[in-house]
Design a protein around this nucleic acid. Structure first.
Length: 778
DNA sequence: CAGTGAGCGAGCTTCCGCTTGACTT
């Protein structure tokens, strides 16, 4: 008989703790929650005080059975899940589902995984905190209500299979609203003026001093007349101000900041970061990766101190304790840090190495001294006008933590604020020799689109979502096709530069590329329609502060100041009314926009969301389906309901185009679901990337048809006369067998061209049944 | 993969948080 059974959430944690506890203790894990609300029939008894109906999650049945067995064999069961709302609930569900007797059950918590912390925890067991458990039940029930009541409204009013939820819908809203800000953004311009002066240094060498004029000009004429003045002006040093400055290191990593930095510095997606971090965690290289805490254990602080001392000396050490400020932070863990700070690197894949080094540097830097700077501001007067040139310099006096780690910023312009700008020695009243004055037309920047990581940052700021859900949420909104992550090319923009040099003003016209995007989040048409519908009808849920306000109520429940199902009742009653009203009264929402009339036929042109995505429609049709049928055409990639123009929409109806006849059959070109294609004899051939369906010529179409025929010939490896339905084909993933519209894999080490009919039939017979889950994926 | 789209309607979809494998098309 086992003395003690300790249950934690994760197997990696169990392994570590087991080592500390030694003999007499078996440590195992529950793999997170083991029970959840039933999915069918809503899982909540709305008539009976919102009584939750819990079932063991299907993928946890095995674990629960195992735990039951172990618990039975043990004298004492220690529930050691995290000390936050979810952890307390996990412990409670375990107690319920394992039917643990109170006298043999103990609840313990610890904040860091050290021998000391764990022994102390064992010495101080407590009882389950029912209030905290109830706060979690309220959270769970609220999310189920919102998700499972709202989604069906979307199925009825917009399109089947859509989803809505407290977290995902607000995340989409951020992206939709940002996109609209960008659409409405009017860029302004101004002429920015830089002055370049020659300064003789102590060593006799001349250096160039760069400065910027305190004023910007709105027109080219103004800029030009300023440059005219500079032709004859005298320039003098009016003032030199030196100020000490400092920079402090960033806090240790949390899930969200790790995702941001891995994205900025290494281009990782948030789920990629989490997968790599998970491996590091499982190999014992780093502490837990789903955390909102910036706290470091006492042991970590000491090791960091020693390590910094060894590497860089005493003056680089500064022990700092950090406190979490994020909204809704629950501090069940430490910050993300290397388990052993002495290891600067680890073995593993290159991704693991890079992420580990990032974490190591960030952690070490957080315990290092400030960087000390000297900032110099020089103002330069101009004899014939009151404006001034200002030169800013920054020199590092002491590098401090910068020796190890520099945090990246989201600065779109790629300004490197860490570069040093050295100002040569200058004295007040010195006169300066002007080398050139340059006025450049500059445009104001539109708001930046979100990256996955900057969206996580925004969500965290508002307390929406948790470390364990940031990555999955971002995947969900992309899977639902509300949001798409992609690159978009920029557009050309003209600007001009006026240069005064050697007494002459010259003008240059230049072109720059602006607005190019890489791996940014864009709302889709359906995302916008769903968002607008929810904002119009369920403002409360879509409010950015909804989560914050319910979180406050959950805290009250945890403090015993509120009863959980009373809180839910106050939310549910009005919410449910709203759902009913919306179902009854609101119109089907298709995001329809009327663009105008076709000048040729006078028919109305509109766009909306159709069954297969956004489409343009020519003609109105009548309500009862009589009269002339309207024409439809899918919008092309890059066209959107909100931005498409009448001319662009009319262009779409020029397809399908008839190109002529080939082998007595029509050749037409059109755009389908998978892009532009040529159609001939009921066969389809995709157009190449370089072909434009609106202009492609007959000859090119024939060329494509011939090429396809050639390829099809090559694709057939073998056909059997006795069984014409069975073919051995060469596909995208190599050879396969096609039989009665189903495809079969050919076993490894088999040459496809040598297969006989009997071999094929045997393979088909022995083929495993296709897995049922496949159909879900898109 | 399939190159469509106004109907009808059965049966399905869906949430957030806690965790790690089992799956290869």
């Amino acid at each position: 008989m086992q003395e003690n059974l300790v249950i934690v959430e994760s197997p990696a944690k169990a392994k570590t703790i087991e080592k500390f506890l030694g003999k007499g203790y078996m440590v195992t894990s529950s793999m997170g929650h083991v029970r959840d609300l039933e999915k069918k029939d809503f899982g909540i008894d709305l008539e009976n005080k919102y009584q939750p109906k819990y079932i063991v999650s299907p993928d946890k049945k095995k674990i629960v059975a195992e735990l039951k067995k172990l618990a039975k064999e043990s004298k004492t069961v220690w529930l050691a899940a995290d000390e936050d709302r979810e952890g307390e609930a996990i412990a409670w569900h375990l107690k319920e589902v394992l039917k643990l007797k109170p006298e043999k059950t103990k609840r313990i918590v610890f904040h860091e995984i050290t021998k000391d912390a764990i022994t102390k925890a064992i010495e101080n067991p407590r009882n389950l905190d029912d209030n905290l458990v109830n706060a979690q039940q309220a959270r769970r029930v609220l999310d189920r209500i919102v998700g499972f009541k709202l989604s069906p409204v979307l199925w009825k009013k917009i399109k089947p299979s859509l989803s809505a939820g407290r977290v995902q819908s607000v995340a989409v809203r951020f992206i939709v609203e940002r996109e609209r800000e960008i659409m409405n953004f009017k860029s302004e311009f101004a002429y920015r003026v830089n002055g370049y002066f020659l300064v003789a240094g102590d060593d006799g060498k001349t250096t160039e001093l760069k400065s910027e004029l305190s004023k910007r000009f709105n027109t080219q004429e103004e800029a030009n007349s300023f440059l005219e003045k500079c032709k004859t002006a005298k320039f003098n040093i009016e003032d030199v101000v030196k100020k000490p400055g400092k920079r402090s290191p960033a806090q240790p990593f949390t899930t969200s900041t790790l995702q941001q930095e891995a994205s900025r510095k290494m281009g990782f997606s948030v789920s990629q970061t989490m997968a790599v971090a998970q491996r590091l965690y499982e190999n014992g290289k780093i502490t837990y990766m789903r955390t909102d805490s910036v706290n470091l254990s006492g042991l970590a602080l000491n090791t960091a101190k020693q390590k910094i001392k060894d590497l860089h000396g005493d003056k680089y050490v500064k022990t700092r304790k950090y406190k979490t400020k994020a909204k809704g932070a629950q501090e069940a863990h430490e910050a993300i840090r290397p388990t052993y700070l002495n290891n600067e690197t680890v073995d593993g894949s290159s991704q693991e190495k890079r992420l580990y080094e990032l974490i190591w540097k960030r952690t070490i830097a957080s315990q290092m001294a400030d960087a000390k700077l000297e900032r110099t501001t020089v103002s330069i007067s101009i004899s014939n006008t009151p404006e001034k040139f200002i030169a800013n310099g920054e020199v590092l006096i002491f590098d401090g933590f910068l020796k190890v780690y520099i945090e990246s910023t989201d600065d779109e312009n790629g300004n490197n604020r860490n570069g040093q700008v050295i100002i040569p020695p200058l004295k007040v009243n010195d006169s300066l020799q002007m080398a050139s004055v340059v006025a450049t037309k500059r445009f104001s920047q539109r708001p930046a689109r979100f990256t996955e990581a900057s969206l996580v940052k925004r969500m965290e700021e508002l307390g929406i979502g948790r470390p364990s859900t940031y990555a999955p949420t971002i995947t969900t909104i992309q899977n639902r096709n509300y949001v798409i992550k992609e690159d978009r090319p920029g557009v050309e923009r003209r600007f001009d530069i006026l240069t005064l040099s050697a007494g002459k003003i010259t003008k240059q016209n230049k072109v720059e590329i602006t607005g190019a995007e890489k791996s940014k989040l864009f709302p889709t048409d359906i995302g916008m329609v769903v968002n607008d519908f929810l904002v119009d009808n369920f403002e409360q849920i879509m409010d950015f502060n909804f989560t914050a306000s319910v979180e406050k109520e959950f805290d009250d429940i945890a403090d015993g100041k509120k009863i959980w199902n009373e809180m839910i009742d106050k939310f549910y009653k009005p919410f449910h009314k709203k759902v009913e009203k919306t179902l009854k009264h609101s119109e089907r929402s298709k995001g329809e926009r009327i663009l105008g009339d076709d000048p040729k036929t006078g028919k109305q042109v509109s766009v909306k969301i159709g069954r297969f995505g956004p489409l343009a429609q020519l003609g109105e049709g009548t309500a009862n389906g009589e009269g002339e049928k309207p024409q439809f055409a899918s919008l092309r990639v890059g066209q959107h309901l909100e931005t498409i123009t009448l001319d662009e929409a009319l262009e779409l109806f020029k397809l399908p185009r008839e190109l002529g006849e080939f082998e007595n059959k029509k050749v037409t070109v059109a755009i389908g679901r998978f892009g532009p294609y040529v159609r001939h004899d009921n066969k389809f051939v995709s157009l190449g990337k370089e072909d434009d369906p609106y202009v492609v010529k007959f000859d090119r179409a024939i060329e494509l048809i011939e090429a396809k025929r050639e390829k099809d010939r090559k694709a057939v490896i073998n056909i059997f006369e006795e069984e014409p339905e069975l073919k051995v084909l060469n596909g995208r993933w190599g050879p396969y067998i096609s039989y009665k519209k189903k495809n079969y894999k050919i076993p490894k080490n088999t040459k496809a061209e040598e297969l006989s009919l009997n071999d094929c039939l045997k393979i088909i017979k022995e083929a495993p049944e296709p897995k049922s889950k496949r159909s879900k994926k898109k």
